[in-house]
Every structure is written in structure tokens, then in C-alpha cells.
């Protein structure tokens, strides 16, 4: 059964290629920093499950130190000039949109097809990860299609990918780092402490104050952590369960995800 490991393998290969191309980019003064950073990301994707928790932790420390000491530069592989792009845009016309649309369309169709596909009576892919697998497939197809349709040199996709990756830089890992921070906060009991404080400070006799504390707490914690995955358990255990639901009889399906609070995860 195909699952996330295959997607991680593809991502690892891509980051390894970025690292290799960065290393050979003599125009980038900080090429060793870039190569080390994307190389470590590649190691995480390729070998993360074999490194052990401490190994992964040290890898993260190294990534943060590389980023924090400004070791990353911006590579500038040879690309087309703005003028050339204008000409290409006029010459290639609407065909340019085709590979761009391949990404959402293949992801969409792939999600449903892959979920239903079976091989020897076994599901072909892990159903819960069908979208991510379809996305990886779509990304590869779109890159190949664009290269063939517009006759680009073979290394163009990886070089252009590296150009964009360097523009994003260390920020590419921030969402994943914040998700990991949420887990550490949970282990350290940050949530329980905040819940206790909120209960101590909220006028518990006022329904409005209780609901407002729940909603504002969710919003504030979500802003802080970059997503609501850590905020939901904290605020719900701290305020919603004892007060909104327990004391004022809030209806869980309505009060948990709605009002002004959600537990979605914005990934960017």
C-alpha cells in the first residue's frame, strides 16, 4: 500500500537536489549554508524515521542555528529575463495555464481515483493520505508536462524550484516547527496552566464573559501558535468543558467548533 513514506521519499529527493545544486552555485556567497540547510531537510524526509527522537531533535537544532545565524543566502540560477518572459507569455498564450491547472485537477481527480483504486483486492493507497499522494503525483506531472510542452532544459525544473525555495528560505519550515512546538507545549502542561488562569480570571457567573473568554482565548492562542490545533484542547479543557458546557449547558456540537472559535490548521 502506498502511503506517506513514498511522498516523503520524493520530497527528500527534491530537497537533496536543491542541496546539491546549491553546493555547485559559486555565485551564492553562502552556498555552503544553503546546501547544509536543504541537505538536513532532505535527511529529515529520507531518514527521519530511523534517526530516533534525539537525532531528529538535534537535526532541528542544527536547522534553527543555520537559519538563526544567517547562513542562508539566495541562489540565483540562470533564468529568463523579464523581457523574455513577456515575449514567451505572448507567444505561448493560454497554453501556459494548462500545466498550472494540471496541479489542482490531478490532485482533485487523483484523490477520488486513488481512494477507490485497489490492487489484488488491497487498497492501493492509504485513504487518509490520498490527497497528499495525489498532490505529489500532480506536482511531478505538471513539472514534466511544462518541460516537454515548452521545451525547457531537463535541469530547469529543479533549478527553478531551487530559485523559488531560496526565496522562501527558512520560512518554509516555520509551520512544521510551530506544529512541533505545540506538541512540546502540551507535554510541558502550558495548556493546563493557561486554562487554570483563564478560569481564575473569568467572572464565572456571567454567560457572556465565559463565552467571550473561550472565543478570545481561542483566537489569541491560535494567533500565537500559527494554528488552532494546540489552542483547541487547551481552551476547551480550561473553559468550555467546565463552564460553557458544564455550567451553562452549551450544546457541544454548536459550542465546540463554532461561535468565533475553530480548530482548523492554517498551514501558511
Amino acid at each position: 500500500m502506498i502511503g506517506l513514506p513514498l511522498v516523503y521519499l520524493i520530497a527528500g529527493a527534491m530537497f537533496a537536489a536543491f542541496a546539491g545544486l546549491s553546493l555547485g552555485d559559486r555565485a551564492n556567497r553562502k552556498r555552503f549554508g544553503n546546501a547544509a540547510f536543504w541537505g538536513l531537510v532532505a535527511v529529515s524526509f529520507l531518514l527521519g524515521d530511523h534517526l530516533g527522537d534525539l537525532g531528529n531533535g538535534l537535526l532541528v537544532l542544527a536547522l534553527a542555528l543555520l537559519a538563526g545565524t544567517a547562513q542562508l543566502g539566495v541562489g540565483a540560477p540562470a533564468t529568463t529575463s523579464p523581457g523574455e518572459r513577456q515575449d514567451l507569455a505572448r507567444r505561448l498564450g493560454l497554453r501556459l495555464f494548462l500545466p498550472a491547472l494540471v496541479i489542482p485537477v490531478v490532485t482533485l481527480v487523483g484523490t477520488f481515483v486513488l481512494k477507490a483504486a485497489t490492487l489484488h483486492g488491497q487498497p492501493l493507497v492509504e485513504a487518509k493520505n490520498a490527497t497528499l499522494i495525489a498532490l505529489a503525483l500532480a506536482a511531478i506531472l505538471a513539472a514534466l508536462l511544462a518541460q516537454m510542452m515548452f521545451r525547457q532544459p531537463p535541469v530547469a525544473a529543479l533549478q527553478e524550484g531551487r530559485r523559488l525555495m531560496d526565496l522562501v528560505g527558512w520560512a518554509a519550515l516555520l509551520p512544521q516547527m510551530l506544529a512541533a512546538l505545540g506538541a512540546v507545549f502540551a507535554a510541558a502542561g502550558v495548556g493546563k496552566t493557561i486554562g487554570d488562569l483563564a478560569v481564575a480570571w473569568t467572572p464565572v457567573d456571567s454567560r457572556f464573559a465565559v463565552v467571550a473568554a473561550y472565543c478570545l482565548g481561542m483566537a489569541g492562542f491560535t494567533v500565537l501558535m500559527g494554528n488552532a490545533f494546540a489552542a483547541f484542547p487547551v481552551m476547551t479543557a480550561g473553559i468550555a468543558l467546565p463552564l460553557v458546557i458544564g455550567r451553562f449547558g452549551g450544546d457541544p456540537p454548536w459550542s465546540a467548533p463554532s461561535a468565533c472559535c475553530r480548530a482548523s490548521a492554517a498551514r501558511c
Binding site: A157, E160, G161
Partner: peptide, 9 residues
């Protein structure tokens, strides 16, 4: 980020 090579081309 897997889509970057396609977007880049």
C-alpha cells in the same frame, strides 16, 4: 513545496 519545480518552470 513539492509543487515548486512545476511552478518555477
Amino acid at each position: 513545496w513539492l509543487v515548486l519545480p512545476a511552478v518555477g518552470v
